[in-house]
């Protein structure tokens, strides 16, 4: 078991999400950055879909009540084991009573802590991912007890720290496909999407990232239609909204671009003020 001593800014349990319930209006949810979360799981020898802790901007403080192993990936929030710095993307052995804490955010925006076997709190509709209205809790609170799938014994320590792709955190390139309504934009609008940088506004969450500035828009709303994580919507006032993992299942704004899966992961590590550039 793991006790939450401090939850951090926005910390939740997530796995790869909830599939098969979109027809009931239930979002996919799941880790925002699948690349980093999978890295943490794989380095522990877990299945990629094992549930992990997702921390946003500031880390949590956690007390472990059992011997196990963990791996932290994604954003660098200066993790510490009993106040001694530990490496990212490397297995760390944990003894009963150990405390994991985090310091200053050095790069990225979301960090993942995987535990050997995965976390196993409330499962709803086939997934451990927290989402308001589907699971009892949508974030972790102080004094929460987190259960671990402890049926397996931790692996022998065998992996060296893995070098991760630096570009995952420092590229501003966001690779996209044309969205279903892309062709309705004028040539000038189309090219202005790719010839300028956009800045991430403070309206950014697990549901969507809104960009600052606006695009001249003459498109009318569409008949409500399916959307996906990574769908870029153009609102009537010309704002661009990029839907993320907790997004609604359908929407009525024109869908002008669609992020590649890898680009959603890259965007998940960005926050207010960061610049991005779309690339077809």
């Amino acid at each position: 078991m793991v006790k939450v001593l401090k939850p951090g800014l926005y910390t939740s349990i997530q796995d790869l999400g909830r599939y098969g319930y979109q027809n009931y209006g239930v979002p996919y949810s799941g880790v925002m950055d699948v690349y980093s979360a999978s890295m943490a799981n794989v380095l522990l020898g877990n299945e990629v879909h094992a549930a992990v802790i997702e921390m946003t901007m500031t880390g949590a403080t956690l007390e472990f009540n059992c011997d196990t192993s963990i791996c932290i990936s994604g954003a660098d929030m200066a993790p510490k084991l009993n106040k001694t710095p530990i490496k990212l993307n490397k297995q760390t052995s944990i003894k009963k009573g150990d405390i994991i804490s985090f310091g200053k955010l050095l790069y990225g925006f979301r960090a993942y802590l995987a535990v050997f076997g995965g976390f196993k709190n409330e499962k709803a509709m086939g997934s451990y991912s927290m989402y308001q209205g589907v699971t009892e809790q949508s974030v972790l609170f102080k004094n929460d007890d987190l259960l671990i799938n402890a049926s397996l014994k931790p692996l022998e320590k065998k992996h060296a720290a893995i070098k991760i792709r630096n570009t995952h955190f420092n590229t501003k390139k966001i690779e996209v496909f044309k969205g279903p309504e892309f062709h309705k934009l004028s040539k000038a609008q189309q090219s202005s999407l790719f010839s300028q940088d956009f800045t991430i506004s403070k309206e950014n969450s697990r549901m969507a990232y809104q960009l600052t500035g606006s695009l001249k828009n003459s498109l009318k709303p569409i008949i409500t239609s399916p959307v996906l994580p990574g769908t870029v919507q153009l609102t009537p006032s010309g704002k661009l909204i990029i839907l993320m993992r907790d997004c609604q299942t359908t929407g009525g704004y024109p869908r002008i671009l669609q992020l590649k899966e890898s680009a959603i992961n890259i965007l998940a590590q960005k926050f207010t003020g960061d610049m991005i550039r779309f690339s077809l």
């Binding site: 599939y19 098969g20 008949i223 239609s225 996906l228 359908t250």
Partner: peptide, 14 residues
């Protein structure tokens, strides 16, 4: 196919 979802006049095959 892992998921099918529809709206008024559209069907998404995932």
């Amino acid at each position: 196919i892992v998921e099918l979802k529809h709206a008024y006049n559209s069907l998404l095959v995932i």
